[in-house]
Design a protein around this nucleic acid. Sequence first.
DNA 1: CGCTTTGTTGAAAT
DNA 2: TATTTCAACAAAGC
Length: 277
Amino acid sequence: MPELPEVETVVRYLRPLLIEKKLHSVTVPTHYQNALHGISAEHLSRAITNQRIADVKRRGKFIVLELDTAFLCIHLRMTGRLLLGTLGAEQAKHVTATFNFCDGTSMHFKDVRKFGRIYHYTDLKPLDRKLGVEPLSSSFTAAQCAAFFGNRSRMIKPLLLDQAFVVGIGNIYADEILWASQIHPARKASTLMEQDFKNITKHTKKILRASIQKNGTTFQSFYYGEEASGAFVDFLQVFGKTNSPCLRCGTIIEKIKLAQRGTHICRQCQPPPDSYC
DNA sequence: CGCTTTGTTGAAAT
DNA sequence: TATTTCAACAAAGC
């Protein structure tokens, strides 16, 4: 499940391979048209013809291909992968779009669950409108957190997952950040103290950076390139550790359901909200 | 079969 | 009116 570190890993892998390539066309099988957001395959193909890839960047969980006069943005959602080169019959299954380059090579968007989306924008305003602060930027501070979370009645975990405030955090890293910060995911944001915000920002940056260093977390299906997987799965402290002892205190990790999301907690290290009332 | 997964959307509730 | 919660949805694997 690609979150910020996984998307960053993909971007770092793709950047040197794609920069300066020139797009020729994109082909989308007729039954996969909704892989494209708000644009037809014909229109998109015409729009990108002869466009050079000037840069490959990341904004939140979006991969941003900066073209000469437009932006091609790709969201992998759950199972999206970008594969370069020619694919065998087995590999070509679930390919919802293929970008053809002028040099005859191509890049395939393979997406088993079909939730991934491709966007074509003339500028990045539509992205910036809905996306909040980059957690690894200097503007993600405890003070910013306090300003945004301080008067909210929502639970802290769904707020961390809300891309409108801080981007890039998904289910895995939200659980890791809250365990490291020793905050129960169901705590109302307005009940958090200054120290909690300091912990959240500190651990968010630390965990995301550490994961990027390990090329992300391959939990179920994250790969970049052919079969390269991320190694951060070996460093996860709570996610996927149901019924294992907490690495801090030995209490058995529980998996609960919170706002429709599987959530891993240590009841000892992350005291439930009612113990604050 | 039912549950899981992400993020968006729109409706309903507060 | 704004904020928050909820359900639906997209699709396929186990």
